[in-house]
Design a protein around this nucleic acid. Structure first.
Lengths: 145, 145
DNA sequence: ATGAGTGCAAAGGCTTTGCATTAGG
DNA sequence: CCTAATGCAAAGCCTTTGCACTCAT
C-alpha cells in the first residue's frame, strides 16, 4: 500500500467509529509504519519524545478499536502493536523462541491459499465465520543458535 | 498422549532445569489438562481454591521456563497459558475476533506439511532455524455472527 | 460555542518479590 | 539436615483514568 493511502485508510477507519485522525494518532501510525516489527507503548514514547505516555496508551486503544492497529503476541509481558493488515498488508512473524526477536515476513501465496482453503470446512463446522488467520513461524535466530 | 505420560514428561522437563515436580505444579498441570482452552492465572485460582495466587504465578513461570506450558495470545490483557505441544499435542486455535472466545482445533496434516515445507527456505534465508509454528484461525463465533 | 482530544498526575490491577516457614530428598 | 518450594502480604510496574485545558468544527 502506498504511504499516503495509509493515512487515508486510518482516517476513514477512525471516522467509522466517530473518531478524528488527530495529530497524535497520526504520529503513532507513522512510528508504527517506520518500524519493521511490532512496537510496545514504551518503544513509541522513546521514539517520539513529544508523545506523553497517556496519549500513547489512550490512542493505541482507540486505533485498535478502529481496526487501524492490532495487538500481537510477544515473549515479554508488555502489549506490542503493529498496523492492521489493511494498512500494512498481509504478513506473518518470524519469532525467535529464545530472545523474543520478531521480524515481519511474507510467505508464498500458495501456502496462504492452502491454509485458508484447508481449514474452511473445519471452521464452519465449529460454527465460526472465518475472517482470517495469524501465523507465527517459531525458530532460533542467528545469535541464539 | 496418554494422561499418565503428561506428568512423566512434565517431571522430566522440570528436572532438566533442576526443578522438582511439586504438588502445586502438578495441580497446575492438571487444571490446564482438564481445560479445552487456555487459562489465565485467575481462572486457575478460581478452579482450585487451595492454590494461592503467588503459587500460581510463580509456578506458571517455572513451568514456562521448563517448556511444560506456553503463553498464548488472547484478546484480553491477561496472560493465558496452556500445556506445551509435547504434552498436549500439536494443535491450533480458533479465535473469535469479537468476544475473544478461544477453542482448540486440529487442522489437516496436509495443511501442516504444506505450511512447514513452504516456509522452510524463507526462514533459513533469514538466518533462523525453524522450530515450529503457531497458527490461529480468526473468525466470528456463532453468538457474535 | 461545544464536544473531542490532550497532559499531567494519581489511581488501578495484574504480577512479582521479600521473608519466614514447610516440605522433599 | 539443607535446599527447594510455599504463603502471605507488600511492593512493582504497565496501563488506565479523573480532571482541567486546548483544539477543531
Amino acid at each position: 500500500m502506498a504511504r499516503g493511502d495509509i493515512h487515508d485508510t486510518a482516517a476513514r477507519k477512525l471516522a467509522t467509529i466517530n473518531q478524528r485522525y488527530s495529530s497524535r494518532r497520526r504520529r503513532l501510525v507513522e512510528a508504527l509504519d517506520r518500524a519493521d516489527h511490532p512496537l510496545v507503548a514504551t518503544d513509541i514514547v522513546a521514539i517520539d519524545d513529544d508523545l506523553p505516555q497517556s496519549s500513547v496508551y489512550r490512542n493505541l486503544a482507540v486505533l485498535e478499536a478502529a481496526g487501524v492497529v492490532v495487538k500481537v503476541l510477544t515473549n515479554g509481558d508488555r502489549a506490542a502493536f503493529e498496523l492492521a493488515e489493511e494498512l500494512k498488508g498481509h504478513h506473518h512473524h518470524l519469532v525467535c523462541v529464545q530472545c523474543g526477536l520478531v521480524l515481519d515476513i511474507d510467505v508464498p501465496n500458495e501456502v496462504e491459499q492452502t491454509l485458508d482453503s484447508g481449514v474452511a470446512d473445519l471452521v464452519s463446522q465449529a460454527g465460526f465465520t472465518l475472517v482470517g488467520h495469524r501465523l507465527d513461524l517459531l525458530g532460533r535466530c542467528e545469535n541464539c543458535s
